[in-house]
Design a protein around this nucleic acid. Sequence first.
DNA 1: TATGAATGAGCGTTCATTCAT
DNA 2: GATGAATGAACGCTCATTCAT
Lengths: 206, 206, 206, 206
Amino acid sequence: MERELTTAIRRPRADSLRNREKLLAAAAAVFRETGGQGTLEAVARTAGVGIGTLYRHFPTREALFEAVYRREIDQLDDLSRELAEDDDPVAALRRFLHGMVGMVATKKGMVAALAIAIDGSCDIAVYSFTTLSAAMQRLHEPAVASGRLRPDVSADDILQTVIGMCLARREDRWEGAVTRLADVFLDGLLVPEAPAMALRRESARG
Amino acid sequence: MERELTTAIRRPRADSLRNREKLLAAAAAVFRETGGQGTLEAVARTAGVGIGTLYRHFPTREALFEAVYRREIDQLDDLSRELAEDDDPVAALRRFLHGMVGMVATKKGMVAALAIAIDGSCDIAVYSFTTLSAAMQRLHEPAVASGRLRPDVSADDILQTVIGMCLARREDRWEGAVTRLADVFLDGLLVPEAPAMALRRESARG
Amino acid sequence: MERELTTAIRRPRADSLRNREKLLAAAAAVFRETGGQGTLEAVARTAGVGIGTLYRHFPTREALFEAVYRREIDQLDDLSRELAEDDDPVAALRRFLHGMVGMVATKKGMVAALAIAIDGSCDIAVYSFTTLSAAMQRLHEPAVASGRLRPDVSADDILQTVIGMCLARREDRWEGAVTRLADVFLDGLLVPEAPAMALRRESARG
Amino acid sequence: MERELTTAIRRPRADSLRNREKLLAAAAAVFRETGGQGTLEAVARTAGVGIGTLYRHFPTREALFEAVYRREIDQLDDLSRELAEDDDPVAALRRFLHGMVGMVATKKGMVAALAIAIDGSCDIAVYSFTTLSAAMQRLHEPAVASGRLRPDVSADDILQTVIGMCLARREDRWEGAVTRLADVFLDGLLVPEAPAMALRRESARG
DNA sequence: TATGAATGAGCGTTCATTCAT
DNA sequence: GATGAATGAACGCTCATTCAT
């Protein structure tokens, strides 16, 4: 997007692009408030354009959904790839959980994106869940391989748990609370150290 | 239909009550299949009564919603009251989580009831969340008081976590998986034993 | 329809039936004026009922079409069956052509019914053309068998010709003119008598 | 596109005329396939120009319609003028009927043009019918004057009959069939010879 | 001048709710 | 009380037409 501004050969797109962005922002807002049920009329009105303009940019509701949510999902995928480089796999997994919670709590359309990933059966829902599942797998597998994570809880289980923690929120500023909950859950996932080793470490601290 | 006109004098309420029950059952079924989007015409048809009869019992869509979901929530409340009698507060809490997961996985309208408790802003949503919050509180407080549960995670946090675990499911038969996840989460909530005590217990087992 | 009035067990249909009739009349009028293109909104408005009522009676445009036009077509079919009893097959065919022209010129929805029979590909169009084709066949076959009608022009050719004569009209009162045209066409279809016989008949007259 | 800006000064009309022709051809094709219902966007796309260009040439849908169909009608008018030179007026009339049928069966937009001439009330419909009426008159009058044609059937009657024969067709390749039907009709229009004369001619043949 | 993005009135359709029977 | 026909606001979507580039 940024790059295209420099390749200024196609000019008559300035306002069109602006409308597209306005529509995406409006859709994110409307869908967030209505749980993805908002009318396209409302999206167009919120964006300040005619309904025809919305349909020119996104010929189906699905297309708008996809445009709105794909970018959100891809950001989580990117985060997972970064953390996969980390040396400590359990720490990387924990950072991913924290990162997810942080992004979902902060970014506008992310909650709706996750809700759709869980609930929907449309193309973007399948894409979203598949992408997130792979992202989680990328960090979960090494963690299990390290022997420090219970192997009987799958990556998808963790993914759905954290998503559930983010979605099942009634209050407003929940980032801290949910981060703590994710930590609690991850603590539960850790293979208990042999007491001897725990005792040894306890002595070292004390 | 014609025949019932003659019996209508002898039992003026029996039919009405039966219709009410048929409508509630039908609504639970229809709302479950459609994610709460089903038409009232479909509910009436499923119940085998006219749309007018539906409206006599439930003057708005909202009212039907409320009646359907209140009973689901009340069953969870009942479970909480039973378990509050239990001697071991942590075990009681664990049983409540298991019971919730079991009921939600099994009972027809429960998923939708929880979704509304979390998401909605209507009367029934407020009632549902308040009721469930109190139910969880009833078991959480003694468990924290026993010193075996981390005090920095609230009853509402636990409630929302378990609800989230139930809602964020794409596959079909998830009772086992989510019960295990709830256990993992509860494990994470347990205050770690002093290593010495753990060692002692370890010896006892071996 | 007439008979059902006597079987007066189902009462609550009085106004409903009236609405149905109003809708059929309105549809015939609107479709006639617009060549079958009129909006359903206009039909409902013309009938003086809400659009929802139209949809309750006729859930698709096709269903309304069918209800409007089937009765028109069936009247032509009835006429054909009556005339099939006639002794003189050519006279019967001529009477059928006159009858068609007369009915089409007089009855409200008939022109549109024929237009659809010719033009449409929907169910009612197929039904209409098939029915009319059989009706014409019923009278054409004996006429050809009598040896007095050219055998190289099919019943469908005649049918489409007469329909065409009725449809291709710009002026208002065309019954007389088209009847004469149908006669001219039928004259052209007659196998020329052997001159000797013609001469003989000529003498008889003179 | 960019290049043409430099050549636009040298030939200001060539492109424009070419576009006009492309649009007319595209419109004829699109209207034929859709029964006159095609969108202007589709016409422009088929022509390979922008919708704005279409509107520059034809400021309303009606104007495009008119331009498309006028040329079809004018071809029939030309045919009539040619045949008016013929010596045998009845043969000329027959040739005109054959020619009409042939052109309508073959030429792309002709069926639609006739349908509009008959059905429409717009400018082009009036022009079309008037033109065709005059064309038919030109050939009909001498034929009637020759005494060989029934005088009680008007030129407009013949015109509408032949148009009707062409329009009322459900099958595909109908040129032969309709040509025969037109002949039958014309046969019916011929003034019957006096039997004596027929007998004389019969003898001459035998 | 050519382009195609923007507009919005209008159509087909659904469905919560009302009301006559 | 029960029924289901009637209503009409509102939604999804199309497309003729306008206008900025």
